[in-house]
Amino acid sequence: MSNITAKLLATTIAATLATQAAATEWNVSTWGSRRAFTEHLHKIAELVSEKTGGAFTMNISYGGLSKNTENLDGISIGAFEMAQFCAGYHPDKNRAITVLELPFLGVSTLEEEVAVSHAIYDHPAVAEEMAQWNARMLMTSPMPQYNLVGTGEPRDELTEFDGMRVRATGGLGKAFSAVGGVPTSVTSSEAYQAMDSGVVDTVAFAQHAHLSFGTINQADWWTANLNPGTVNCPIVVNIDAYDSLPDDQRQALDESVDEAIAYYLENYGKLLQRWDEVLEEKGVQKVMITDDELAKFRQVAGQPLHDAWIQDMSARGLPAQELYDLVFSTLEKARASN
């Protein structure tokens, strides 16, 4: 072998090894099946791969890595590098962000949901609490206001919620409790079975979840305007995995968040546009609750639950009032910019 050939070979091997060393493969844990709620995961995976020339790739697993209620635990031990979870699954592990699950906050669009979520995620108290789980907030999974599907006669008056068994987590569960409902926090994957077997009478979900988990197929009616609140479901990354990324890959990840969220919003918007068609196709009655009944619900399950949250979280050492005020100042800013 000539010296030139040997040098060329050595250079090729060195370049190959360098490329292999810089290649990053992350495992991402979520649940259910691919749906509007997970589209930003697929988009961010596509974007980072494109921006790094395939050096940074992500494998998205739907339940193969962890149960949805254990994704934060998996992140904490480094079982995978990225995960999606919902605050209401384990409120004691992520107390600070439960402010976003309070009922009747008045968030009216997905864009507003993104704005308030990311403002809260950026608060030092949230970063500190998440760091206990070796987790770093990356982005939200914005969802519209939850509404009920149910069987039998429509429940369109507050008195009819008394004794109603409802699948609802977090602040939504507390809201229904306040008006006499009996919430159960079965996971989204278990909601269809809970409805089918009569464990619950009603299920509170966003539209995409009623479709993807099949609860709409059991429904006789859907509350179009109850809008009691929503759940907050962040995407987090393992801090060690994030910190060990080469600079260009970390930059590609950070810079792809806004693009992934924009794609999510566009995709979800299409689903919302055809929701009425879905109800008609499936023969589900659209129930409109009167302003008087809604006002009663807010009076019982709105501000009293907000005040209780502030008191409880302050007692636990969190800057609860500050977090609560941040939601409303962010909402004000988001509306002013529109």
Rank of each mutant, 00 (worst) to 15 (best):
Y324D: 02
M1R: 13
K174Y: 05
D201K: 01
M195Q: 08
G283E: 15
T24W: 04
E280H: 03
H118R: 05
T24R: 09
Q207R: 05
P304H: 06
V300A: 04
F80C: 03
Q249F: 05
A252W: 08
G302V: 13
V278T: 15
Y268H: 03
L272H: 07
H40D: 01
A204V: 06
A119R: 01
D162Y: 01
M288A: 05
P319D: 08
G317K: 04
S189Y: 03
K286D: 15
G317E: 15
P183G: 08
Q218Y: 02
T215N: 06
P154I: 12
D162I: 13
E153L: 13
L8M: 12
E190T: 01
K67R: 13
Y268W: 03
D92E: 12
Q20L: 15
A315Q: 15
G302Q: 10
N232Y: 04
S189H: 06
N232Q: 04
A219L: 02
T5K: 11
E128C: 07
K270S: 14
F176I: 11
W221M: 10
L211R: 05
V186E: 04
V149F: 06
G32M: 12
E280D: 13
D162E: 11
W221G: 07
A96Y: 10
S108G: 02
V200H: 09
V186R: 07
F161A: 03
A119G: 03
Q207G: 03
I13E: 14
M195L: 11
A209D: 15
L17K: 00
V237N: 01
I289P: 14
A336S: 14
G150P: 10
H90Y: 15
T290R: 10
I60V: 06
L294D: 11
A131F: 02
I235M: 05
P154C: 00
Y242W: 09
Q273K: 13
D254C: 10
N71C: 00
G74V: 10
D240I: 12
Q251V: 14
H42P: 13
A315V: 15
G106T: 11
A83Y: 00
A18E: 14
T19I: 14
H118T: 05
D201W: 02
I75A: 08
M195G: 05
Q218F: 01
D92T: 13
E280A: 03
A135D: 07
S117D: 03
G173T: 05
G214L: 12
K67V: 14
A204I: 08
E129V: 06
V278K: 12
T98M: 03
L148V: 10
I75Y: 02
G214N: 07
E112K: 02
F161H: 01
L105M: 07
F297V: 07
W133T: 05
E255K: 12
Q285T: 15
D73C: 04
G64M: 06
S33K: 11
M130Y: 06
G302W: 11
F85D: 04
P246C: 12
T330K: 02
S2H: 10
